[in-house]
Write a protein that binds this DNA or RNA. Structure first.
Length: 483
RNA sequence: GGCUCGUUGGUCAAGAGGUUAAGACGCUGGCCUCUCACGCCGGAAACAUGGGUUCGAUUCCCGUACGAGUCACCA
């Protein structure tokens, strides 16, 4: 028998942003499909009319594109299972609901929402008391004729158990009486997610249903539906939750209150798509080998469902920062320059700088492009600082020595015609030996005078080169005035 | 509350019935160094808990605690 081709799907609602949890679901679905040469499908689940958001589909495509996930079939590149937008498949759901109605696996329910609301506080019938489960055919006919609004509900067995084997969580069993006669078709004629999902997954040949584990306990409902239709059930892959950390250290489902949680939020902050996807892949999964840096292509070759964990993972910005800095270090100088240049230009008031030089100093010192401004802001204007900053034990720099160094270096630097890195460094080195001190003792006070900071990207000579002779001398002169 | 799932350092996590219980982030000591960073070498830090099963359990089973998910005409 020929092995069935793996087909997975990512089925987001077009609500306008791509949460990191959704991204991971998409990623794992993609990896499961691609690691076995299968197909990855994008389907838009817009059955909730009220939540539709214009442009959301573009955003989804854009996000997938940025991280390198290509879907083999979707609204913009339909295959033979279309349409790929649920609101365009209404007839399909209606026909399937009709089949269930005919077979008795579903029934009309004419209850008003108000009546159902009043049941909410009733322990026995928390959601629905199945009042319409056994209406007589004639009554149904009459209500239909009178155009009484209705929904279509699934007739769930009152007794017994339904179990399934999840690829991650193993065997899960739910008592049927815990399962409500869920709504399949809403009063507005649209199917619910639960129904459309099953119909589409079957019709589109989905073999692995990959989704968050918030669906774990409702999976039996889906399986009951598959059974009613006499369809082959898919394999389920439920993913552990992603948690966010609160200020007090407690954790809960990751949400906006924890900071940036959508892909766009993260890229806006300067995180690289590759780093994001790499980090997200490690939230609930890890490879056999002890390695962490993986491109999407690498992930495809090493991914396996068996290694997905069961316990929820806390989203950690520190670790994301680390991934991002690793990706930055991995970049060629040219790529880094191209990406950092806009940030550098934006941070500096004058365009009279050697951006290439500044950029080269930044690489290896930032974990995120948004850190650039604070790192080089001192170039615009020397920070305010106290004289105490000239005192540094490790560099053997004190107030007295600083004063001498500053004055002498002023004279020396003034005389240098070609203000290059090499000549500046050589001259200052000579000054150190003339004074009989270590080079740090010379470099420290000058660097402080140039920046007003104890730590700067690049050393004293780098700063002299970047600021140029005139500005450097101006800043040193000002420093001398402090004594 | 009912049902379902989970629990290895602060975080991500590997791991096997017998290990000195990996590794990474973060924190931290040192080296390198014209500061910082990078890099390199170290350090602190964990198997929730009570019962079994077993010669031996952190690993298997049961209970408890804690955490999470779910109980919509949302997905």
């Amino acid at each position: 028998m020929q092995k069935k081709q793996v087909r997975t799907r990512y089925a987001p609602s077009p609500t306008g942003n791509m949460h990191i949890g959704n991204l991971r679901t998409a990623l794992y679905g993609y990896l499961i499909a691609k690691s076995s040469g299968g197909k990855f499908i994008l389907r838009i689940e817009d059955t909730d009319q009220s939540r539709f958001c214009e442009g959301a589909v573009d955003l989804i495509y854009d996000t997938l594109d940025k991280v390198g996930i290509v879907c083999d079939e979707g609204p913009k590149n339909p295959g033979k299972f279309g349409p790929y937008v649920q609101s365009e498949r209404l007839d399909i759901y209606r026909n399937h609901a009709k089949k269930l109605l005919d077979s008795g696996d579903a029934y009309y329910c004419f209850c008003t929402e108000e009546r159902l609301q009043s049941l909410k506080n009733d322990d026995e019938f928390a959601g629905y008391d199945r009042r319409c489960r056994n209406l007589s055919p004639s009554l149904i006919k009459k209500k239909l004729h009178d155009r009484v609004p209705y929904v279509i509900r699934q007739r769930v067995p009152l007794e017994g158990y339904t179990s399934f084997v999840d690829s991650v969580y193993g065997s899960v069993t739910i008592c049927n009486k815990e399962i409500e006669d869920q709504i399949l078709v809403k009063a507005d004629g649209y199917p619910t997610y639960n129904f459309a999902n099953v119909v589409d997954d079957h019709l589109m040949g989905i073999t692995h249903v990959v989704r968050g584990c918030e669906y774990l306990t409702s999976t039996p409902k889906y399986n009951l539906l598959y059974e009613s239709f006499n369809w082959e059930k898919p394999l389920y892959v439920h993913l552990p939750l992603i948690l966010g950390k609160n200020k007090d250290g407690s954790t809960e489902k990751l949400s906006k209150r924890h900071g940036a949680v959508s892909f766009k939020d993260l890229t806006d902050l300067g995180y690289l798509p590759g780093a994001i996807i790499n980090y997200v892949a490690f939230l609930g999964w890890c490879p056999v080998e002890n390695r962490e840096i993986f491109s999407l292509e690498d992930l495809v070759t090493v991914f396996s469902v068996e290694r997905i964990g069961k316990s929820p993972a806390v989203f950690d910005y520190d670790k994301l920062n680390w991934f991002n800095s690793e990706y930055i270090k991995l970049m060629s100088d040219d790529v880094f320059y191209n990406l950092s240049e806009p940030f550098v230009k934006k941070a500096l008031k004058s365009s009279d700088y050697n951006f290439r030089k500044i950029s080269s100093l930044l690489k290896g010192r930032i974990s995120n492009f948004s850190e650039i401004k604070e790192k080089i802001d001192f170039l615009n204007e020397c920070c305010d600082y106290s004289k105490e900053l000239f005192i540094n034990k490790k560099s053997k720099s004190g107030l007295e020595s600083s004063q001498i160094v500053l004055k002498k270096s002023m004279d020396i630097l003034e005389k240098i015609e070609n203000f290059s890195h090499e000549s500046v460094f050589d001259n200052l080195k000579k000054l150190a030996s003339d004074l009989g001190v270590k080079i740090n003792t010379v470099m420290w006070p000058i660097r402080v005078a140039l920046s007003g900071l104890s730590a700067t990207p690049g050393g004293c000579t780098d700063l002299l080169e970047i600021l140029g002779k005139d500005e450097s001398l101006r800043r040193i002169k000002k420093a001398i005035g402090m004594f």
